[in-house]
Structure formats: structure tokens, C-alpha cells
Nucleic acid binder design. Structure first.
Lengths: 169, 169
DNA sequence: AGGAAATAGCTTAGCGCTAAGCAACTCGCT
DNA sequence: AGCGAGTTGCTTAGCGCTAAGCTATTTCCT
């Protein structure tokens, strides 16, 4: 029982407490990390969803626009590149592209070098929306992070990087 | 430009690099944390899904069994309590309970004190499966965490707790 | 006591995903 | 040159979720 600065209990502490009572043989240390990672991802994901809804798109659709946007001029990628980057099946990608194309945010055109393939390009409107939405999303995340001082944010980011590198191989 | 111990780049660094090139005005510090949190949650979630599949259940179904298990004797909760804990609509809960009941892992019985309500109870078989599966899941998480020494794990857990408390209010 | 509001769990429609299969096309090998 | 294997994007069936609406029941208020 190492002394840690008094810190409020969170929902994960409560769950771990229950396990300690029911299954004291269990080593629940890993839950302290991954339980919180799951809950954070879900909580922030829900908020982002709502933030992007103001622009008429879902989180998944934003991810498509953002991937095209940050790829730089001419903001063009193939459906395959997109589904690989976003870890999505081609079926799922087709659906997202359909919606975004119907909304006029991107354009599908034949790949001149490979007649099987397509090029997906951000429209002027899609570019504008991506630029606005990415700012709104970042603002939300930045605000949530304001609970931690700068040094802790850096520390946290560094530890997460180590863990992510070990996890994704 | 703060000096940090040389550390390998991860996929989130690559994304942030792209944004820095395309939108140098953006403050992407928050992505360093939440980008990694999302990816970690997804990567570990996928692995857990596979781990539980060996027991014939999904991650969501495991969560139901685990919630009942750690509630202690007599391993009984109402569908309402379960859907509140698991942040699931009642419709979604009905589906999960149907599957788990058909598999013989739990039992639905009328609540003797409220004729609207039900009691959901783990069967002997459900209890056994929950106890095995929770061990397997924890083993997976523990192994992933072994990339970090004990001190860093504690540090990481503490920072995540602070952030989670600030985020979930 | 008696009616209005709240709550329990189920049902349905709709959405977005995956897995699997398809035709069109390109590439690599001989 | 020509054939087999691989790749591309789309389609379909199925799954699990949400949102909304339903009935039965309980609780609250007067």
C-alpha cells in the first residue's frame, strides 16, 4: 500500500473494490489502466459525436473528411487507402462515402491509372467543414484536458505512447 | 521543443505531424492524449473480443456476466440496474439477456416485490464462465501492461483517474 | 380512495458495421 | 502472349445497437 496523494475515487475504483471483495485472488492492477482507458474513450467519443452533429456529420464521417484534409493538396485518396487508415471494411467505407458524396462534401472520380479504382476528393465545401469541425473537436478535447497541468499532460501522453507502441506492435 | 528521452514515433505522432504541416495554427496537444486513448481502447477491445469468443460470448455479454458476478451473492440484479451500469438502452439489454438466457448462463424470474420488474440471476454455469473469462481477460491486459514498469503503471493509472473524474463529472 | 405521472421491460424501425461474395481489372510468372 | 492470382469497390445478409412507442404496474399527490 504505497502512499499516494489523497485522490477521489472514480467508478473504476468502485468496480475494482467489488472484485477485491468477491475474488481477492485476482490481480486487478491492469484494470486501473484499461478500465479507465475504455471509459475515457467512450465518454469523449460521445461528446465528439455531439460536437460533430452540429455540422451535420457523424464522428465516423468526420474521420473520413479529416483524413483527406490532413493528407494535403489535392486532398485526394482512394477508398482503399481510407478504409485501411480508418480500420474499416470496404463495405463500411462505401456507406460513408455514399453519405458524404450525397451531402456534397466529397467527390468520387475514376482513377486514371487503374480502372478498378476510384479517387475520392474533398470538395470546397468539404474542406471548409473539415477545417471548422477539427477546430471544434480539438477545443472540446483541450477543455477536458484543462483539468491537468501541462507537465502532467506531457507525462500522460508519453506513457500512453509507450503503451500504444507496445500494444499495436 | 522540450527535451524528452528519445522515444519511437507512434501512429498518433504521424497524424499530428500531418496536421502540423497542413494546419500549423492548430493546437493539437490534446490529440496526444485522446488520440492514443481512442486507439488503445479499440486495440485492446478487439483483443478482448477474441479472448471472450473462446468462451462463446461477446465482450458485451461478458460485461453482463461480470457485473452480476462482482455484485456478490446471490448474483442477482434487475435488467434496469444492468442497463444503467452498462450504459445501455433497455432494448439493447433485452437482446443481451435473451442470448445469455438461451445459453443457460443466467435466468430471468419475476421480482416478488414489483410485478413490473424482473430479477436476473447468474446460473451455476454462468458463474463458472464469468470466473474463468475474467481471469483470461485480465491476463491479456496484464500482459499488454508488462511493457511498463510498476512505477509507470501506477503513474499512468493516477493520471487517468484524474482525467476520468474531470471528464465524467 | 382515485387519477396523473413515473417506471419496468418489451417491441419495432432504422442505422452502421462486418463478413462474405461478386464482377471488373491489373500484375506476375512462364 | 496468356493464364492464374491478387486487388478494387460494391452488394447483400446478418448483427447489435438506439430511439421511440407500447402495456402493465407502481408511486405520488390531492
Amino acid at each position: 500500500m504505497s502512499a499516494r496523494p489523497e485522490q477521489r475515487k472514480d467508478p473504476v475504483d468502485a468496480i475494482i473494490g467489488q472484485w477485491a471483495r468477491e475474488r481477492p485472488d485476482l490481480n486487478t492492477a491492469a484494470m486501473e489502466v484499461f478500465g479507465r482507458v475504455s471509459r475515457l474513450a467512450r465518454a469523449m467519443g460521445d461528446r465528439m459525436e455531439k460536437a460533430y452533429a452540429k455540422y451535420g456529420i457523424s464522428r465516423g464521417e468526420f474521420d473520413v473528411l479529416a483524413t483527406l484534409r490532413r493528407s494535403g493538396e489535392p486532398h485526394t485518396l482512394s477508398p482503399r487507402q481510407l478504409s485501411a487508415t480508418l480500420m474499416l471494411t470496404t463495405g463500411g467505407m462505401t456507406g460513408r462515402l455514399d453519405k458524404l458524396e450525397r451531402a456534397g462534401l466529397l467527390r468520387r472520380s475514376p482513377d486514371p491509372h487503374d480502372r478498378r479504382g476510384l479517387q475520392v476528393t474533398l470538395t470546397e465545401q468539404g474542406l471548409r467543414l473539415a477545417d471548422e469541425a477539427v477546430g471544434a473537436g480539438l477545443a472540446l478535447q483541450t477543455q477536458a484536458l484543462s483539468a491537468l497541468d501541462e507537465e502532467r499532460v506531457e507525462q500522460l501522453a508519453g506513457l500512453l505512447r509507450e503503451l500504444l507502441l507496445a500494444t499495436e506492435e
